[in-house]
């Protein structure tokens, strides 16, 4: 036990500070990817709910592909092919340099695309949950599209979507571990490196598990609070 604690010591002699630093990177990637995912999700939901024939198919293609293919494969494809694809696009527009892409940015984009597919379904469901009559009533009251959007739709969609988005957050947080295989130094990668160097994988993977538990538990609390806040004006049944 004391040996394990020595391995996890703070400072240059142990791996404690590196593991905790890894947790911060995990949190950073997860947060950025989750927010990007909500942006993709809102766009995806708008596409899926579009009344223009054929357009919803694009949204279906996005969610079906991402949700049907292992996240690890998606991440590998984006890491290995993403940079080249982005450059190909840039060259169409006449840019000939290399696009800077560090593992953090690529990781956020990859996870954002994955998280966005799940957010699309959540947001779409939330939009459909807003009673049609309310929109009609708002129209009848003479509200413009924009006013209807930010006064009637958005507040309710946010409330309905919150529990589902909480699930998506958990998924995104845990998916960050997959970015380790392509080199971003977050919790999991730090645990690889430390266990390789000390030949004590058990200690470091248990530490990693504890850090993830802490992150998920804390963020659960945040989402619970947010749900209570979002439902503050709603009668409890």
């Amino acid at each position: 036990m004391s040996e394990a604690l020595a391995l996890l010591a703070w400072g240059d002699g142990g791996w404690g500070d590196e593991m905790v630093f890894g947790a911060f990177v995990t949190l950073q990637v997860a947060t950025l990817a989750f927010v990007l995912g909500i942006v993709f999700g809102a766009g995806g939901a708008a596409i899926k709910l579009s009344k223009v024939p054929g357009v919803p198919l694009i949204g279906d293609l996005y969610t079906t592909l991402i949700r049907g293919v292992p996240d690890l494969i998606t991440i590998y494809i984006i890491f290995f092919g993403g940079g080249q694809a982005a450059m190909a696009v840039a060259r169409v527009f006449g840019y000939t340099g290399y696009i800077e892409s560090d593992p953090l940015t690529t990781g956020v984009i990859a996870l954002g695309i994955i998280s966005g597919a799940y957010s699309t379904e959540v947001i779409r469901g939330a939009v459909l949950a807003v009673p049609k009559g309310q929109i009609e009533a708002a129209k009848a009251a003479g509200m413009s599209t924009l006013t209807r959007f930010h006064r009637i739709l958005i507040p309710q969609v946010a409330r309905y979507a919150l529990p589902g988005l909480g699930n998506v957050w958990q998924l995104t947080l845990k998916d960050t571990s997959l970015i380790s295989v392509v080199g971003l130094v977050e919790i999991m990668r730090q645990a690889f490196v430390a266990s390789g160097s000390t030949k004590e994988p058990f200690t470091f993977f248990v530490t990693a598990a504890v850090l993830y538990l802490a992150l998920t538990s804390l963020s659960n609390k945040v989402f619970d609070k947010a749900e209570i806040w979002a439902n503050r004006g709603v009668r409890r049944v």
Partner: peptide
Amino acid sequence: RSTPLLVQIFLIYYGLGQ
């Protein structure tokens, strides 16, 4: 449900194997 599957796999394969 709160830890990544990858951690669980590594704990069982490399962690126990140690």
